[in-house]
């Protein structure tokens, strides 16, 4: 067994002793000397060939350390959604490597990849992708059950997470009985149910109004404070500005990489025009 797969197993053992989803991944601190949670090396994805070759993602190198909230921005068609699909093992690169938790995942077989995705990655999509015929709680429980949790454990984790996202009183509702913002919060709870190494979100606020967007961004902020590694793709500058780091994608390549320390108010102060 490789050192890397032991790392992942180590997590699931810890999980066995700690049933509470509220505990959060607090053992992973930013700056932990264990290398990046997610790493892309020369990552490329091309479609078509010869004249019609389109390089959707073209040689991206990217390290996402534990506990970082990373936003990937860029105009539509810049390749940012494709990049997220590659990072999440939903699509295969034509060249380059993807590493998750120290383990190379781009050349895993389909079954091993599906297993890794289920256990170690939480997905959040623009259009929620909830199962319409399942209640909120059942939607959250499902990935836990698929990953081998007992029904009781899955139920407990789902209840804890729905409470955490402020929907304890909506657990028995069907998605059709929830607002867009509530559905996305269910989707986020679902993404967290297996305590993933990383949450990948593709335009998570793309279908939401500004009040619901605020709710989701606050929730992401709480997750980040609890040490959750997060990668989100967004074309919305205001959403990107809530991250720790923003990378811009242009024509499939990284064009800019900016670190943010959003806590202060010095820049806001300079916007005031005090002339006394």
């Amino acid at each position: 067994m490789s050192r890397d797969s032991r790392r992942i197993r180590g997590r699931s053992q810890r999980r066995g002793t700690d049933d509470s989803p509220l505990a959060g991944p607090s053992s992973r601190q930013p700056g932990e000397a264990s290398g990046p949670v997610l790493r892309a090396v020369g990552l490329s994805r091309a479609y078509g060939q010869d004249e019609s070759l389109v390089r959707a993602v073209d040689g991206v190198d990217l390290d996402v350390p534990a506990g970082q909230a990373l936003a990937v921005t860029g105009p539509s068609g810049c390749g940012k959604s494709t990049l997220l699909q590659l990072l999440g093992g939903l699509d295969r690169p034509t060249d380059g490597e993807v590493w998750l938790g120290g383990r190379r995942m781009d050349h895993l077989g389909e079954r091993a990849l599906a297993r890794l995705r289920r256990r170690a990655i939480g997905f959040v999509f623009q259009s929620f992708h909830l199962m319409d015929e399942l209640t909120a709680a059942e939607n959250v429980e499902l990935p836990a059950l698929l990953a081998g949790a007992s029904p009781r454990t899955a139920r407990n984790r789902a209840a804890g997470l729905l409470d955490r996202v402020g929907l304890a009183d909506r657990a028995r509702h069907l998605p059709s009985e929830l607002s867009g913002g509530q559905r996305q919060r269910v989707a986020i709870a679902r993404a967290l149910v297996n305590e993933p190494l990383v949450v990948l979100a593709d335009e998570p606020t793309g279908n939401l109004d500004s009040a619901a967007t605020h709710d989701i961004l606050r929730l992401f902020d709480e997750l980040r404070a609890a040490g959750q590694t997060l990668v989100m793709v967004t074309h919305d500058e205001r959403v990107a500005a809530t991250a720790d780091r923003v990378v811009s994608l242009r024509d499939g390549t990284l064009a800019d990489d900016t670190r943010l320390d959003g806590g202060g108010t010095t820049r806001l102060g300079s916007l005031l025009n005090w002339e006394g």
């Binding site: 961004l217 500005a241 809530t242």
Partner: peptide
């Protein structure tokens, strides 16, 4: 590029402050 960094950092402050306040 430099201006974008400047603006996104200002926006980061504005957004974090906005999230901490009632809309």
């Amino acid at each position: 590029d430099a201006r974008r960094r400047e603006l996104i950092r200002s926006l980061a402050e504005a957004q974090h402050a906005a999230l901490a306040h009632d809309t």
